[in-house]
Simulated scan of single mutants.
Amino acid sequence: MKVRKSKGMRSKTMRLLHEAPQSAAPTHGSDQVPAAAPVKLVVTPATDPAVTRKSAGAGDLERVDANNRIPSWNPFDRSCLSRDLFDTIGDKWAMLILLSIQDGPLRNGEIKEKVQGISPKVLTQRLGVLVEDGLVTRTSHHQIPPRVDYELTELGESVIEPLQSVYEWTVSHMDEVMDFRRKTRKSQTRAS
Rank of each mutant, 00 (worst) to 15 (best):
E168R: 10
R53E: 09
A94L: 11
E168N: 12
V159E: 03
I89Q: 01
A56N: 02
R182L: 12
S23A: 09
K54E: 05
K92M: 14
D149H: 05
K54T: 02
Q116W: 00
K2N: 13
Q164D: 06
V159Q: 04
T184P: 02
R69W: 00
H141W: 10
E154M: 09
E132V: 03
R78W: 06
G57Y: 05
S172A: 05
D77R: 01
Q22H: 12
M1G: 11
R107G: 08
P38N: 06
R15K: 14
Q22T: 15
G156K: 08
K5S: 09
Q143W: 02
E110H: 02
L135N: 01
N68S: 10
A94T: 14
K92C: 09
P34N: 07
H142I: 09
P145G: 08
R181L: 08
V64E: 06
V115K: 02
T13R: 15
S55Q: 10
E19N: 07
A50M: 13
K7M: 02
E168Q: 12
R182E: 15
D31K: 11
M178I: 10
L106M: 05
D91S: 15
S140Q: 03
P105I: 00
E19H: 06
E161N: 05
L61R: 00
N67D: 04
P71Q: 03
E132K: 14
E151G: 08
K112P: 06
R126C: 00
R190S: 04
A94H: 08
S23F: 07
A50D: 14
D84P: 00
S6H: 12
P26F: 07
L163E: 04
P71A: 10
S6N: 14
V51C: 06
S6I: 06
T139L: 02
L130Q: 03
P21S: 11
S6Q: 11
T44S: 10
L135V: 01
Y150M: 07
L106Y: 03
T47C: 12
E157T: 04
R63T: 11
P146A: 13
T88G: 01
S30C: 15
T44F: 00
G57R: 12
Q32V: 12
H142C: 03
L127I: 05
R147P: 00
L85W: 08
I160K: 07
V3N: 01
N74G: 03
G128Q: 11
I144Q: 13
T124P: 00
R4G: 09
T139P: 00
T137R: 07
L106C: 02
G8L: 13
Q164C: 03
R4C: 09
A20L: 15
P145K: 04
V129K: 12
T137G: 01
E176V: 04
K121I: 14
I70Y: 04
T153S: 14
Q32A: 13
Y167L: 15
L17K: 13
Y167H: 15
E110Q: 12
R190E: 06
T137N: 06
I89A: 02
D77T: 01
P34Y: 00
A37I: 01
A58G: 10
M174R: 11
P21V: 13
S192E: 02
K12S: 09
Y150G: 07
A25E: 14
K2S: 11
R182D: 13
S6F: 14
G29T: 15
G117A: 00
P49D: 09
